[in-house]
Amino acid sequence: MIRSTVAALGLLAVTALPALAQSVVSAGPTLTAVRAKGVVDCGGHPGAPGFGVMDSRGTYAGLDADTCRAVAAAVLGDGNKVRFTTLTSSTRMTALQAGQIDVLPRTTTWTHSRDTANGLNFTAVNFYDGQGFLIRRSLGVTRATQLDGATFCVTAGTTSELNLADWARANRLTVRPLVFENNDETRVAYQSGRCDVFTTDASQLAGTRTALRNPAEHMVLPELISKEPLGVAVRQGDDQWFDIVRWTIFALIEAEELGVTQANVDEMLRSERPDVRRLLGVSGDHGPFMGLDRRWAYNAIKAVGNYGEIFDRHLGAGSPVGLPRGVNDLWTRGGLMYAPPIR
């Protein structure tokens, strides 16, 4: 009796496999739409040096821009098959909700309300940040708590507005906020002297400082007043697309940890390491599990490099922004960048 029951269960498992495989590889609504139009539509920033800004060649460049190109390469095999829509902080989430874009990698802080009340899902963090303050050195301020009574330029539709109010209340300080529609307007207002302080994510302030007329006259104060995990968002209701975007980001982080780079990725196809072989699709069906080609991660790395290469290119010490890796380093070097295993 036991033997016949086991045999029946084994037969059931075998007969169920084709149906399971079919459900795994079939394309969901977003993947189907992206393939039909032949492009991934991404939300873009009006101008955030290091994250998303037009460079001298007219190319939209930055960490967020390359995150989108990695997704396009994973899905369509070509990192150039992207289309960027410039969005303000106030319109970015509405554009994603409405289907105007497929993915939002645009310096967007992952918060509870954004993740639960806006019809969005955050896939992964591609940069850990915190809110800071940009000031003129001539102000003679060395600590943020010395800014009592100052005028603060801040961008509408950002977590910076609420954080500023919370910080001032907690420290019993008086602040006078001037709110603008986008970061460019905020930067211009700060540069023209309409406010004493520009407050937003510290990484963006570092980039903004490089674009000012005399960067040496300005400084970013060392204190951070908030946690700003900048995440990449998709619409709720399409688990397959959520997985594709999330695991593309993880693949870039895993590639750095395994020493797979844009330059050596072809050579690494011949690696005997099981984890490298799985990452690059030499073994396993991890791409087909998401409805993609086995070389999905290979294509992404080939297009933009691993996470460390992207960071160094746009934000690192050799870039105009000049940020240290800090918490955005790999977990093996004391940072927070940690990808679940591809297996």
Results as ranks from 00 to 15, higher is better:
333 R>Y: 10
298 Y>N: 06
248 T>D: 11
131 Q>I: 04
273 R>Y: 06
257 E>N: 09
99 G>P: 03
85 T>D: 09
244 I>D: 01
32 T>S: 09
53 V>C: 10
269 L>Y: 00
9 L>C: 10
5 T>L: 09
228 E>N: 05
116 T>R: 14
120 L>V: 12
139 L>S: 14
333 R>N: 11
30 T>F: 15
100 Q>V: 14
96 L>S: 15
139 L>G: 02
144 A>E: 03
234 V>S: 01
9 L>W: 08
318 G>A: 02
91 T>I: 13
168 A>Y: 07
329 D>S: 08
138 S>G: 05
322 G>W: 13
281 G>P: 04
94 T>R: 07
28 G>M: 04
151 T>Q: 06
332 T>L: 15
143 R>T: 09
107 T>I: 07
247 W>E: 12
339 A>E: 08
55 D>M: 14
24 V>M: 03
246 R>C: 10
96 L>V: 07
264 N>S: 12
20 L>Q: 14
119 G>P: 15
185 E>V: 01
141 V>S: 01
56 S>V: 12
282 V>F: 08
268 M>S: 09
165 A>I: 13
121 N>I: 14
321 V>Y: 08
265 V>M: 06
106 R>G: 15
248 T>K: 01
265 V>I: 06
73 A>L: 04
163 N>D: 11
140 G>D: 05
308 G>S: 05
168 A>T: 01
292 L>H: 09
268 M>D: 05
210 T>R: 09
212 L>F: 12
228 E>W: 01
38 G>V: 15
228 E>Q: 09
151 T>R: 08
184 D>R: 04
303 A>Y: 05
178 L>I: 11
226 S>R: 08
262 Q>K: 05
284 G>T: 01
88 T>L: 07
295 R>M: 11
102 D>F: 05
194 R>Q: 15
23 S>I: 12
191 Q>L: 08
153 C>I: 00
165 A>E: 09
145 T>D: 02
338 Y>G: 05
82 V>S: 02
285 D>K: 07
303 A>C: 14
187 R>D: 03
49 P>M: 11
104 L>P: 07
265 V>W: 03
24 V>N: 06
255 A>N: 08
239 D>V: 13
